[in-house]
Design a protein around this nucleic acid. Structure first.
Length: 565
RNA sequence: UGCCGAAUGGUGUAACGGUAGCACAACAGACUCUGGAUCUGUUUGUCAUGGUUCGAAUCCAUGUUCGGCAGCCA
């Protein structure tokens, strides 16, 4: 017997699509599209949109097109076309043979513009850009009709053809829709739909010197592809009347429904392509794929999994209200995923030497360690143990605060998978820094041994000094020190909030020898510390570089942070 | 002050006139050879004021606050 279950709640877009389907619209088909402009790398906000559009297509047994919205040759580039495809694929989505470019439609778009002119709904305007701004008015200021607005159709046709022929200079003329110069919606005040740009396009070369504007190209591209639901972000809401107007006037055979949702914002980072580009160009980061960037490429390099990003996109939901998502949710999603799948290893980031006084010189034991306690199938491995070890500086305190469960002078601690040791002597250098610890082991306390069940509060990780391998480890922190760095404030450069400690490079790290074979992109949990990923760009055999994806949840840091006020 | 939107705990998001729920965060505890994971529990919310109704987060009115729009960008 099944108990009555509440239907899984749908977001407002899926709700609407469900209703359309129920009403028999679009012949029962669902076709969406992800339409990036190739003028930058994709970021986590795009990932949300990708998951939405491709996810809806998958869910409703439809398809999602990948369409490059490349109508502005001055800012677009093939580098971006390539990175976008790589990122969408990496995220786990497939556009099959549905890859398109708005530039594929330039000729069709031109013909639609001619048709608009023939229907008396567009005109060639000779106003300069400055004049056009003036004539357009402002939100509360009525517009003024262009003196060229009532040119005869034949003259418009001739002029538009000559615009295409390259007879006029950049910026000297535009083709404008003839709608209503006094519309309360500024986008309806006879918007420009074609401009002259004698620029080389990354795909059409010098074939064109006039290019359609977004508002004209987008709705018609959607229409040409038979898109049923054209999902975009909130700032296009005021464009929808224009979207609909163009398709209505042209009496097109299909009329996609534009639906707007609120874009994703994440705290402690910026999400505008312009700002991200600025960080790249000013070398505030090492590139679009810098692991601190909220770009898909950066997150990939940092060690995020596609699964975790998809899970995140699911959890943030889809709605129309402005939002700023807590970075903690993203981090929760990666930890959740990585905890289940990643192999454990021991690595000492800031080494301090430990000498076991009562352990035989030259003896080496191979101790068994569990590869992943969450997955018994991952098996075990051997870790060498010897008289000289390294432990992390953080795991020893000469003057321990209350509740400190690690190594202290005269205190005991468990070495993971090995023995319980006691610190008997602290060696310092001339500056008073602790450089070496002498300890003794409890021989019976070896994991599995007779006294191994002794209750010891703390367990720490370690590596054998002579067996361990060197590595560089890069620790990342949030790129900005304030929650909403993108918010423009008068007289304040948004870049003044960049976190000067967003990157810390550790070069003295020592890792357990099993990591020798770690290859680019592989992810591990360094026990008690976090998840780390072999850097795909800078790591090499014998010269390992790891990126810290995210720390483990750190209850101790919280306790200590609180007691320090 | 024109037009278009949106307001539910700290952050997101459900509830579609009938018990305000879920997740993250926070807090407390259990367990632990990772201060991880896991488990248990706790705190915190319907923008305001009216109205309709047996009953309102939901419907209506007014107001408030926040966001978007004045590129020949997308």
């Amino acid at each position: 017997m099944s108990t009555p279950e509440a239907a899984p709640s749908l977001d407002f877009i899926r709700e609407r699509i469900t209703a359309d389907l129920a009403a028999g619209k679009n012949g029962g088909k669902v076709i969406t599209r992800f339409p990036p402009e190739p003028n930058g790398y994709l970021h986590i906000g795009h990932a949300k949109s990708i998951c939405l559009n491709f996810g809806i297509a998958r869910q409703f047994k439809g398809v999602c097109h990948l369409r490059f919205d490349d109508t502005n040759p001055t800012r677009e580039d093939v580098e971006y076309v390539n990175s976008i495809q790589e990122d969408v694929r990496w995220l786990g989505f497939d556009w099959a043979d549905k890859k398109f470019y708005a530039s594929d439609y330039f000729e069709k778009l031109y013909q639609f513009a001619v048709e608009l002119i023939k229907r008396g709904k567009a005109f060639v305007c000779d106003l300069t850009p400055e004049e056009m701004i003036q004539y357009r008015g402002a939100p509360s200021v009525p517009g003024k009709e262009s003196p060229y607005r009532n040119r005869p159709i034949a003259e418009n046709l001739d002029l538009f053809q000559r615009m295409r022929n390259g007879e006029f200079a950049d910026g000297s003329r535009t083709l404008r829709a003839k709608i209503d110069i006094n519309s309360p919606n500024i986008h309806m005040r006879d918007p420009a739909i074609y401009r002259i740009r004698k620029a080389e396009h990354h795909r059409t070369g010098n074939q064109w010197c006039i290019y359609p504007m977004y508002d004209f190209a987008h709705c018609l591209s959607d229409m040409i592809e038979g898109i049923t639901h054209s999902i975009c972000t909130l700032e296009f809401e005021v464009h929808r009347p224009l979207y609909d107007w163009i398709l209505d006037v042209l009496e097109t055979p299909c009329h996609p429904q534009q639906i707007e949702f609120a874009r994703l914002n994440l705290n402690y980072t910026v999400m505008s392509k312009r700002k991200l580009l600025e960080l790249v160009q000013e070398n505030r980061v090492t590139g679009w794929d810098d692991p601190r960037m909220p770009t898909v490429a950066g997150m990939r390099r940092r060690g995020y999994t596609p699964e975790s990003i998809r899970e995140f996109a699911d959890r943030v939901g889809v709605a129309k209200r402005e939002n700023i998502i807590d970075l903690a949710l993203l981090e929760y999603c990666v930890r959740e995923d990585l905890n289940k799948r990643s192999l454990r290893a021991m690595g000492v980031l800031r080494p301090i030497k430990v000498i076991l006084d009562n352990y035989p010189e030259g003896q080496v034991e191979e101790l068994e360690a569990i590869n992943n306690p969450e997955d018994p199938a991952a098996g075990t491995r051997k870790v060498p143990f010897s008289k000289e070890l390294y432990i992390d500086q953080e795991d020893f305190r000469e003057n321990p605060p209350p509740k400190y469960f690690r190594l202290t002078p005269g205190g005991e601690v468990r070495l993971r998978y090995a023995y319980i040791i006691k610190c008997v002597q602290v060696v310092k250098n001339a500056q008073g820094d602790v450089v070496e610890l002498h300890c003794t082991i409890d021989p019976g306390s070896k994991s599995g041994g007779p006294t191994s069940n002794r209750k010891i509060k703390g367990t720490i990780h370690w590596v054998s000094a002579s067996h361990s391998i060197p590595a560089e480890v890069r620790l990342y922190d949030r790129l900005f020190t304030v929650e909403d760095p993108g918010r423009e404030q008068e007289g304040v450069d948004w870049k003044s909030n960049i976190n000067p400690h967003s990157l810390e490079v550790l070069t003295q790290c020592r890792l357990e020898p099993s990591l020798t074979k770690a290859t680019a992109g592989e992810r591990y949990q360094f026990e008690r510390q976090g998840y780390f990923c072999v850097d795909a760009r800078d790591s090499a055999p014998g010269k390992l570089v790891f990126n810290r994806t995210v720390t483990l949840r750190d209850t101790w840091a919280k306790i200590e942070g609180k007691s320090q006020g």
